[in-house]
């Protein structure tokens, strides 16, 4: 065997174990759950599980609730994170450096703990209520076991990670470009729309994808601090699988969330591979 083909075999051997794991924990389950979702009670194949998802009143309200929460959360996360990342990139002061040091902390805090912290803080007799009481405010708006609570938790979980992705993309924007644009008299907004946004929109899309999928597929926060009905789809899936033991319906619901994210998932993979192809040639 030539040296080159030996190296080729070696490369494949090194990659194979991790690919096999990937196959068993991602590709196989997704294929199987698709088949399972089309199985009806008598063992035949039809769309009955999907029809149930869209005709059952409770299911429909769960789907609408999940989409509402997700869209509001993603919008807020992107707006806040982008503003924060851009501000940190182009301003340098003691306070900015403080924020830079701290903003990544929440990424590493266990989700259960953060959710618990938010419950204790925002509950109707929580720490926030105790502070407000000192200022004569005696009734807190309802956050916990409510949609607002889920959205707040989503912001807590997603803003740091999104900011991190965007901050890393923004460090790649060279100072010289910005300065020369300033020299020729470009205003703040023009620099933003004509330079910064085009240079970072790809990461913005990646960040949007992560936030969208993270929130649609979330479980911990909605399970612990969401309302009993309507539920987020993650919680509903877990209940159908664990409590009602209906694997077909749970699979159908899982596959429905895949479908909702498929456009973003496809886009994420396409953008990622496009860049690399450009580099290889």
């Amino acid at each position: 065997m030539s040296k080159q083909s030996k190296m080729g075999v070696l490369g494949l051997l090194l990659v194979l174990p991790s690919f096999l794991v990937l196959f068993v924990i991602v590709i196989l389950p997704v294929a199987l759950s698709f088949k399972e979702s089309l199985t009806n009670d008598s063992g035949g194949y039809d769309l009955s599980n999907y029809i149930y998802l869209f005709t059952d009143k409770l299911m429909r309200s769960n789907i609408i609730f999940t989409l509402t929460v997700t869209i509001i959360s993603v919008g807020l996360v992107l707006a806040v994170s982008y503003a924060l990342a851009v501000y940190m990139r182009f301003n340098d002061s003691a306070i900015v450096r403080w924020i830079q040091k701290m903003y990544m902390i929440p990424i590493f805090i266990p989700g259960v703990i953060a959710t618990y912290g938010l419950i204790r803080m925002l509950g109707n007799r929580g720490w926030a209520a105790q502070f407000l009481y000192q200022f004569g405010v005696e009734s807190m708006p309802r956050f916990i076991f409510d949609m607002k609570g889920i959205i707040i938790a989503n912001l807590w979980f997603n803003i740091p990670f999104t900011t991190m992705l965007l901050a890393s993309a923004l460090t790649a924007v060279p100072n010289s470009i910005i300065e020369s644009a300033k020299d020729v008299g470009a205003g703040m907004w023009r620099i933003f729309f004509n330079l910064i946004l085009p240079l970072t929109y790809k990461t913005l899309l990646v960040a949007a994808t992560f936030a969208f999928m993270g929130i649609i597929g979330s479980f911990t926060a909605p399970f612990l601090l969401g309302p009993n009905a309507p539920q987020m789809l993650g919680v509903s899936m877990q209940q159908i699988f664990g409590v009602f033991q209906d694997r077909q319906l749970a699979s159908a619901l899982a596959f429905f969330t895949f479908f909702l994210c498929s456009i973003m998932g496809y886009f994420y993979i396409r953008e990622m591979t496009k860049e690399e192809r450009g580099k290889a040639t």
Partner: peptide, 15 residues
């Protein structure tokens, strides 16, 4: 990363 997590976990649990 191309699938929402809880959906993927349910699929894995089925497997």
């Amino acid at each position: 990363n191309a699938f929402p997590k809880m959906g993927l976990y349910i699929s894995i649990a089925v497997l």
